[in-house]
Design a protein around this nucleic acid. Structure first.
Lengths: 198, 198, 198, 198
DNA sequence: AATGAATGAGGTTTCATTCAT
DNA sequence: AATGAATGAAACCTCATTCAT
């Protein structure tokens, strides 16, 4: 007697997830190039053949990861949009970004690594571009916040803000042990979330 | 008439440089993994065999690049040390860093990419570490500057400054076309080089 | 109320036929190697597993096809044997062969392709041999016809006839659009079915 | 000291030829699909890697073979064109074709096998088409001969002739041991090279 | 100092077949 | 009778590196 289609679908979903989880772990730990399909299959506890049953190849695994990542980023932004005052929005963004990186610095590091892919690497540049585009969308949203805050040159101020926040995230993922996040949060709050600064 | 040993050495140096130049161009344009030894030899106009006469392999080319990069960074720092006032030192660091990235964003992008290598990529992590250590050394120097400036919590202030500067550099190399560097320089100057800020 | 054994067997036969039909369509269209078991199962609208319930594997499908083909060939020959005069027999053979190829050139082409399999392809050579043997049997029958026709060297004349007929069939399946079968039939009739020719 | 470019070119040519020879032997003996790159490399006495240094892959080996084959066919036709009388031309074509197949039936069989590839086998159909086109060109030339011979319906007569000759070749490569080529040559000569036949 | 032919380890991918359900 | 998830062997291909010349 065959399994029901629902049961099969459930198995497929579980398998896809477990493969993707294995791939994410290894990509993040060792990097994309240093991870082979064999590694992933082994980590997921399945055969290489089965992996190809679920994903076209290594690149599709990365694509799926990046899609999920962008999905999370969008979700965080949408959450922020529901907040009432612009100051609170900004605080939420800052807290969210910093805590997120602080909790899993190697994850942020992985995507930053991907984002800084050279332009002429034809295999991977699309994922880099995709992440950069999403960052740009987030930047537009932050511009709106600065406008609401009444900043004189909202766009430039927002750019400076984004640079600072990105820089903090870069520093955290580079020196994860030693980063005093509370102190740094205080400084960025003081600079950008205090009405006196405009 | 055979060449003198000195002459021979000079020729060797020239050859090494031309190979290294070829490797740098390709690594920066396409990335380390997407560049093959054949590509490099072709770009340098020599045979694969000769390349191995000068460098142990692809990795040594990268090592040499990174060494040179760190050398440049040290030099810039030493230059800054000769400047008299701390404010001028800071301005010099900022100007130098931003102009440098702005002129060749893809170069900074390449080293940032290398720096964000996952920890468990045994082949490349040493180069990442080397760059990070040099960054840390630069950070120490900047701490001293902030101390001289009389900042209350010089270390934390310096960390925040570094984050901001690194963030700006990251943004420039990510959006090289659209970055208003003058405006951003003004903002970072205003914040960190103005005595009122402490 | 369970099915009777006969009923079950009938259902099995129908299923086998529908699978075989799917396999034949795909083999003939794309060739044996370019057709996967998955393709066949999909085309037949069943699962891969069920296919293995009916056939041992891809090769058995081919074996069954070839058996059926040989069966048809035998039947055609038997039909011809019921005809009274040798001239009519020959005409019937010619008409049958040419019309058959003309109607489905890709089918004849497929079996000719199989027949020309290299001798050392262990997987497929048996089917090639089987088809060739049946051709040989047909040849023997044609020899008899030529003997009855009173040909001086019946065997050689028959061999020449077979060559001509096979050649026509090869040409038709190679240039299916442009082949003037009526004209060609006339020529082969004139040459072999006219008593003056001996 | 490096080899001279000429010496290298010679080595390359020899290597290419020996690889191609190995591939041809195996393709003809076992068929294209039953022959792996490893088989070919082993037969040629080289590593797999080196094979890829000379040929893009298995398909390029086939392409090179087919090119060479078509080249030979063209050459034979050109030779025939230098002959004075049409009857002699026709005799030359017949003799050449039959002797050729008789000497190496498995070679003709291989190309006939390729020619009968199903239309939808995307990997191999181009080679089939290429051979068929060349056959068509030969057919055009034969038409001219029949015109010169004063055949009433030269094109149809030529088509019938081609069919007969192709059929003989097919029979020879199918029953290589038992084919009485002299007798068959006599029959085809009698039919097509004798002025009384028109 | 210089070449590029040659190697082989290591990766990716396909697919006929099995088997738990 | 029926499914399709799962396997694994065997194919393809790439490229850093070596070495005879």
């Amino acid at each position: 007697m065959p399994r029901t289609p629902q049961e099969n679908e459930r198995i497929r979903q579980l398998a896809k997830e477990s493969i993707l989880k294995a791939a994410m772990e290894l990509f993040i730990k060792q990097g994309y190039h240093a991870t082979s399909i064999s590694d992933i299959a082994e980590q997921a506890g399945i055969s290489k053949g089965l992996l190809y049953n679920y994903f076209k190849g290594k690149e599709e695994l990365l694509a799926t990861m990046v899609d999920a990542r962008v999905g999370e980023m969008v979700e965080v932004m949408n959450q922020a949009k529901t907040i009432e005052t612009p100051v609170e929005q900004l605080k939420h963004i800052i807290e969210g970004a910093i805590d997120n990186v602080y909790k899993k610095p190697e994850v942020f590091r992985f995507y930053l690594h991907l984002q800084t892919q050279p332009e002429a690497d034809h295999e991977l540049i699309k994922y880099s571009r995709f992440l950069i585009e999403e960052n740009a969308r987030q930047f537009e949203f932050q511009c709106e916040i600065f406008e609401k805050l009444g900043a004189k040159e909202a766009r430039k101020r927002s750019l400076y803000f984004s640079s600072t926040l990105q820089g903090i995230m870069l520093m955290i993922c580079t020196y994860p042990q030693q980063f005093p996040i509370q102190e740094i949060k205080k400084q960025i709050f003081d600079e950008f979330c205090n009405s006196l600064s405009f």
